[in-house]
Write a protein that binds this DNA or RNA. Sequence first.
DNA 1: CGTGGGTTTGACTATACTCAACTACGGTGG
DNA 2: CCACCGTAGTTGAGTATAGTCAAACCCACG
Lengths: 213, 213
Amino acid sequence: MVDHNEKLDRLRHWRITAPKGRVIYDEDEPSKAFYRVEAGCVRLQVNRDDGRRQILAFCLPGDVFGVDFTHPRSMAAEAAAASALSRFPTGELCETWSPQDWASVADSALEIIRALATHLAGMSHASAEDRLLWFLDWLAKRQRTSRCDGVLRPPMSRRDIADFLDLAPETLSRTFNRLAARGLVRAVDRHRLVLRPRSMEAGGHELTFRSAA
Amino acid sequence: MVDHNEKLDRLRHWRITAPKGRVIYDEDEPSKAFYRVEAGCVRLQVNRDDGRRQILAFCLPGDVFGVDFTHPRSMAAEAAAASALSRFPTGELCETWSPQDWASVADSALEIIRALATHLAGMSHASAEDRLLWFLDWLAKRQRTSRCDGVLRPPMSRRDIADFLDLAPETLSRTFNRLAARGLVRAVDRHRLVLRPRSMEAGGHELTFRSAA
DNA sequence: CGTGGGTTTGACTATACTCAACTACGGTGG
DNA sequence: CCACCGTAGTTGAGTATAGTCAAACCCACG
């Protein structure tokens, strides 16, 4: 299930589970550990004082998050779905890490940077349709490893997706309808949907439907 | 000038200079080094195939960027102004790093994550005015260390700022005018502007002018 | 001094937001 | 097991904000 992150297995860690909605850690909290998602989905987010929130990244199985060492948390982490995690304590324990260990942990931090960069890039100058297609494409790429039937089962709520794409929930709903009307996606049931080939194969970022009639 | 990053000084590095517009490295390029800004300003960006670009972060003096080890670059780095940089080669040299060195480098990578997270958070659900105020506030915080007179001298072009805030250049221009009309900013000359106290002191993120008449 | 790219201004359009009401699902308890 | 309730999601109408296209402007550069 996991690929290169198995290098982390040599570090001390243990399993924990988190029901949907559980706060793994909050903003500005001191950092005592980092985590790897084994099952489920975790959302990294910042909560604004006006009650709104921005989801910065979704972490799926295999993803490592929360590498902050002793710095305060720059974002909060919450379970977007019932999840299983591996918890890797940091703190003074870091001093026993070998250079290889450090390289592995640093790699994990770089993955987060990549995710944030991809997120920012995917949403820049993009219409609601572009954003949603980009998101579905990303999700398909991540879930394709396990199931190749083109059926997507987003583990997070509509609200989460809206906050991730920086769209109002209403806009997201309407955008789904518009894509469905075009035949680009089709809802199987409440939690399953299929993507049309165009966005499935997707070698590069061929998501330029901007001005298509 | 630099604070905690002086810990990097023990690593092998040397100075280079880059004129405005110089490409430090490009997307997908193999990574051979990381950098620290000593003077000037570097922009981290992704270039889209439609010619547009999204600037993910501005790196000011003291900032470290380009920590990717051997991974391909996830974003491009270009000098937004004439700049002086320290170049720290990575590659096989990493193997000679001590755990303390690794910790310092990892810290630098975390700073980038923080910057990206702050960027994403600051622009979410935000109007053009909010975005610009947030940007000016950020810039003021960074330049306040050297000069406390409240005079800002943005080292990057208007176009750069627009691409950073994900706004059209025209919108940015109009937003500047609107803020000036409100007395929140005032242009001294082409490259200098002053911020009114409201956004200068700024303990927290008191940038909620959203629905102010 | 002349040229050209970055910047500004204007008019118009399109897109996403807001507010509000309605609906459907999922979880809970009887 | 079914009924209920609360939350999440959807639909509708109207509005506001930022994007687009086009042209003028101006400073910086050669």
